[in-house]
Computed example of a mutant assay.
Amino acid sequence: MDIGFILSGFIVGLLVGLTGVGGGSLMTPILVLFFHIKPALAVGTDLLYASVTKSVGIFAHGKLGNIDWKIVKRLMFGSIPASILTTFYLKQIDITSTGAVDIIKFYLGIALLLTSIAVIFRPYLIERSKVTLLKSDNAIAIATILLGLVLGGMVTLTSVGAGALGVTALLLIYPRIGITKIVGTDIAHAVPLTLVAGLGHVSLGTVDYSLLGVLLIGSIPGIYIGSHLSSRVSEQTVRYVLALILIYVGQKFIFH
């Protein structure tokens, strides 16, 4: 069984290295659908998994100056309180009950479908992101905080949204910032968000530490190999395949 978890970690890490997307979007569904891990336990374990794997990206993007810390702070102003409130909500219900499991699966499916849309249309948004939708800095700040609010709740409940959805929304809010800096900023925000959300799940008892360690054994070399293969593999092909997988898995959760 450990071999299966290691292989899953490797595959997800490979996709993250190739496209920058796939961490929470694939790991939680794999754990739930293929290994029959309880949804809440899969989400909690995946959140700490994401905080560890994405922390490497902070150092890499930080050295290259690809992080806008002002945007990160604005996002955290909305996401951290939302994460804490969502954790508090989960503490008030029986997360092992059939009703709670169905709720988590439903919103996980919604998050996966939204992520697939973001993955498909990201190149289009990059091309069209020269149009400024928000004029004033106050409007931009409020939109960023609201984005953080949505991401905080979604990520804590499903572990999905901190990657592709965050990048896509930031491209719309900050059209004049390059994609590399947007990605670096999104990763810098994802680390504290997934850490806070993960610690919230620790307090709920929905983290499997041995599973976390096994997944990391596979994912770390996967990310390394994927990042080195990214220039040799058709990113567009991988992106469309990933989107189709997300659509299939998303509808499976929604109509379960």
Rank of each mutant, 00 (worst) to 15 (best):
S83Y: 04
S83Q: 03
S83L: 01
I84W: 12
I84D: 10
L85E: 12
L85M: 13
L85P: 07
L85G: 06
T86D: 08
T86F: 06
T86H: 06
T87A: 10
T87Y: 13
T87K: 04
F88C: 15
F88R: 15
F88P: 14
F88K: 15
F88H: 15
Y89S: 15
Y89L: 15
Y89Q: 14
Y89F: 15
K91Q: 12
K91D: 14
Q92T: 12
Q92M: 15
Q92P: 13
D94P: 11
D94T: 09
I95M: 11
I95Q: 04
I95A: 14
T96Y: 04
T96S: 13
S97C: 09
S97G: 07
S97M: 09
T98D: 14
T98A: 13
G99E: 11
G99M: 09
G99W: 06
A100K: 03
A100C: 03
A100M: 03
A100Q: 02
A100G: 08
A100V: 05
A100T: 04
V101L: 08
V101F: 02
V101C: 04
D102S: 14
D102Q: 10
I103E: 14
I104R: 05
I104L: 07
K105Q: 09
K105M: 05
K105D: 11
F106T: 10
Y107S: 11
L108C: 05
L108T: 05
G109F: 00
G109Q: 03
G109P: 04
I110Y: 07
I110P: 05
A111N: 05
A111E: 05
A111Y: 01
L112H: 00
L112D: 00
L112Y: 01
L113N: 02
L113T: 04
L113A: 10
L114T: 03
T115A: 13
T115L: 02
T115M: 03
T115W: 02
T115E: 02
S116A: 11
S116P: 14
A118E: 01
A118I: 04
A118R: 00
A118W: 00
V119L: 07
V119Y: 00
V119K: 00
I120Y: 01
F121S: 04
F121C: 09
R122W: 12
R122M: 14
P123R: 13
Y124D: 01
Y124C: 05
Y124T: 04
L125T: 06
L125N: 10
I126D: 02
I126A: 06
I126F: 11
I126K: 13
E127L: 15
E127T: 14
E127Y: 12
R128I: 00
R128W: 09
R128S: 05
